[in-house]
């Protein structure tokens, strides 16, 4: 019992740092990760930065286009949820960041992104740019050995990082979260901020 005293004191001390009474259903990461910043290129090989998505709720996901299951499922799911927003969908961007630039050329990215609908922006960059972005959001990725056709697996993060319209990191969605929770939280992020909290 006494062993618990110190941890509890520290928990209380740290609990003061974050907003403990979250209004959101997904995991709140407001206090944990830095605001949206990236330097990548899109399917038209145009440079893109975090500022391009100002005023939008951004859902960022790391993957690669040769991914057999989890990437297409996640993207289809996100696109489906965003479609349910109706007109408000125009204020949401789904960023698919490919960590496999060797195979995911701009043309491949463009076709892949378009397959999931208008709100999906497929991005990639040099290993240096991708490494910096992965480090910023504390995710990891790695490449498996190539088979006889030169194909290989890529391990990557499974989380969707959600940023509010001001680019602040707010929520983290995983495969275990329901579509309804995702939809409700995106709607809440899109709602105009109450005056009291400004």
């Amino acid at each position: 019992m006494k062993r618990l005293v110190w941890p509890l004191l520290l928990v209380l001390a740290l609990a003061g740092c974050g907003d403990s009474a979250s209004l959101y259903r997904l995991r709140d990461i407001s206090a944990l990760l830095p605001p949206l910043a990236l330097r990548l290129h899109d399917g038209d090989n145009r440079p893109r930065s975090g500022a391009d998505f100002a005023g939008q709720v951004v859902l960022m996901y790391f993957g690669y286009t040769h991914c057999p299951d989890i990437c297409p499922t996640t993207l289809a799911r996100l696109a489906g949820v965003v479609r349910q927003l109706g007109a408000a969908a125009a204020r949401v961007s789904i960023l698919f960041v490919s960590v496999d630039p060797a195979r995911d050329t701009p043309a491949v990215l463009r076709a892949y992104g378009e397959a999931f609908g208008p709100r999906v922006v497929a991005l990639s960059g040099s290993q240096r740019q991708l490494g910096a972005l992965a480090k910023r959001y504390r995710v990891s990725y790695g490449f498996g050995p190539a088979d006889s056709d030169g194909q290989y697996e890529v391990s990557h993060s499974s989380a969707v990082f959600i940023f509010d319209t001001r680019g602040r990191a707010r929520l983290l969605a995983t495969a275990s979260d329901s579509d309804a929770d995702l939809l409700a939280d995106i709607q809440r992020l899109l709602a105009p901020a109450p005056v009291a909290t400004r």
């Binding site: 504390r138 990891s140 993060s157 499974s158 983290l172």
Partner: peptide, 9 residues
């Protein structure tokens, strides 16, 4: 570690 990805499989 599932969320952020492990260093190797």
């Amino acid at each position: 570690y599932n969320v952020c990805g492990r260093a190797w499989p």
